[in-house]
Design a protein around this nucleic acid. Structure first.
Lengths: 212, 212, 212, 212
DNA sequence: TCGTAACCGAGACGGTACGTCTCGTCTTGGA
DNA sequence: TCCAAGACGAGACGTACCGTCTCGGTTACGA
């Protein structure tokens, strides 16, 4: 998770409290809702969690890392619904992602830690491993499900085919996540069913035109 | 520009120095490069600009607004190159945008003010008017140029056609800007000629499939 | 006084508030009475003085220096009463000194800063110049007054006579101050008229036996 | 000694380690030399002694009590040399006391605990019983030895004579200890043979003039 | 010989104060 | 009226110790 795997056996001294861990992460999300990233302070989180500041710093080096861990779990709620066809599946996940990003703790926190990560490589890596890479599973799952349905051709064999597929996954991910984030946070307009349909149509048509 | 239109005529007292304005904005960008958004302080900017803090606060209410103005001008450098066909034109603008976002003062500042704007509506409006809306011109210009070349059909007449076109402009803008930003800042991978070509291909194929 | 003489003329910027100086020193003494040296915190002093902590640290580098300045002024209240004969004059000053050291802010602060000064030369020097050396005037005044009365012989001429006199002043000062402090703070017994008389008798007899 | 007499018999459970006791007191003195009273922490002492903080707190309630015990033993090294006459004997003990107070662990600790004791009666009592009262033996021994030599008259009989003698012992003790401490720690000048001779001369002449 | 009670190390824990930093406002004096 | 310099009240920062607690494990007595 955060600091270290810390072998459950043999570690001398009093072990860290797991309830404390949860209390802190819960308090972090609650505080984000109330005061936003800018108003979030370690002292406030500690007070809400009924915990000493020291206890926070023992686990996380700074605000950014704490918030990444606090928010990461929210993204794990995302899942690919099985609505019968690829278009519907993607629309479903786009709407879910939109709904997630509309929550105040998510939107304010996500952009802030991304901003912070532009000058902090360790933080970027943490964001990647805790949030971004975990959600690529959705793209992979969608593809394999569509292949099973016959909506997409099976992966090309051979190493160069694999590499191309890998590359396309990254592109799709950037397009989906980027478009949703940009519409919500920069353009400040809602991600509703209409927009999801229009966007997904564009994406699938684009993908169809990409390969040959 | 920033605080007030302040009529050039008739204002009593000593007028504000225009060199001071520029010195402050330059110092802001320079400081952003060195210390990032998180490390940027009004005092630091004032010191770099050889100016008193009071002078900053007389012009901008806070750090965010100052940074928006400091960064906005960079985005005006973007232009749509005329490379002869729509695909090339878009690739060119994507590469320009990627290069702009790769500059440290741009990427750190842009995400930070967007994050801040999630809890500050006035700031969001300022970002929109100073940065985002000004760049939609690129999409509009690209479309009309492509129409002139015959690569795209002319706009549908009538009000519903106009509305649909307006809506598509927003979608395209979100997809382009979102994908580039996400690739650079979240996925942390470069926006190079290969990626630009692949992305543009996807986009144009998607657009072709969107209309009918 | 404390930080610097700071030329009253020409210093740019807002000058420091003199009322603030006094409020802080008053608050320091009041807090010493209530909570003692060990319980004294910079934050508490600041709060009592209605002042920000920053304002304290702008003037004094730490608790010890602040307390030395706060307490020093109390010692200036001491004076040599003119009761007609040397014995009575000394008894008077001994009783005054005893009364001063019986005040809670004085006794707790004085020993604490002396203790701190054993590992801080700058602090020792500050104590010396702000407190100790200023009180040697009492010994000198007492001697000259006694000489005027004919109770003591005039100073021996010549440099070696002067040096011996100087040396004796130091001895007398150490004996008086040391005995009073030790009785009050270590032996924890009162400095009353009886004790003052007995002690002064010993001192004067000793001095009479010292010279020849 | 410190916490309890703890009957050597019958106490169930593992007995406390005596080496640990010594290691802690040694570590306390060593740490005092290095960092002084202000910088002394229980954690530091524990670390130096190779012991857990818990182990310290099982034995002493706080820093002051620990330091009193750590330093007290040093004062037991003092003894009254037999140099043949009272003046020489006193000079000898004054020099010894001066040398003891010149050691860094002694001077920093002694003043600090005295300062602390001004707001802590239990501590003052501990200092008295562990340090001060034990050294009055030197004054008593000196007096009886001088009486045996015929340098001083025998004690006056009767209860009022006894009381007066008792009172004089306190006065002498305060004068000697106070003067030495003051010279070393406040005046910051050395206690050397010259000063010891001058001071002792004053003291004995004073005593001679005190009685009749 | 075996329990049991107190010992011991390590370190987590809720607190408190530290001294520093930045904020945004204010008060000077000079231009 | 503007500007620079810098004092000011406010409050968060991250650190250091405090004294207490919970661990797992050790040591010596006495039943």
């Amino acid at each position: 998770m955060h600091q270290s795997a810390r072998s459950p056996k043999g570690r001398p001294g009093r072990p860290r409290s797991v309830e404390t861990d949860h209390a802190i992460l819960d308090a972090t999300r609650a505080a984000l809702v109330d005061v936003g990233w800018g108003g979030l302070t370690m002292g406030e989180v500690a007070a809400r969690a009924g915990v000493a500041k020291t206890t926070l710093y023992r686990r996380w080096a700074n605000k950014s890392e704490l918030v990444v861990d606090a928010v990461a779990v929210l993204f794990d709620e995302l899942e690919l619904p099985d609505r019968g066809c690829l278009q519907s599946d993607i629309e479903g996940v786009v709407l879910q992602f939109g709904a997630l990003l509309a929550r105040p703790e998510t939107k304010t926190a996500l952009m802030a830690v991304v901003a912070e990560s532009t000058t902090d490589d360790a933080l970027r890596e943490r964001i990647r491993s805790a949030i971004v890479d975990r959600q690529k599973r959705l793209v992979l799952l969608g593809r394999s499900r569509a292949q099973a349905r016959g909506e997409l051709p099976p992966d090309a064999g051979g190493p160069e085919g694999e590499e191309a597929a890998e590359c396309t996954v990254g592109l799709i991910f950037d397009v989906i996540a980027g478009a949703v984030v940009h519409r919500l946070l920069v353009s400040a307009e809602p991600v509703d069913a209409d927009w999801a349909r229009q966007f997904t149509t564009l994406l699938l048509a684009g993908l169809a035109g990409l390969k040959p």
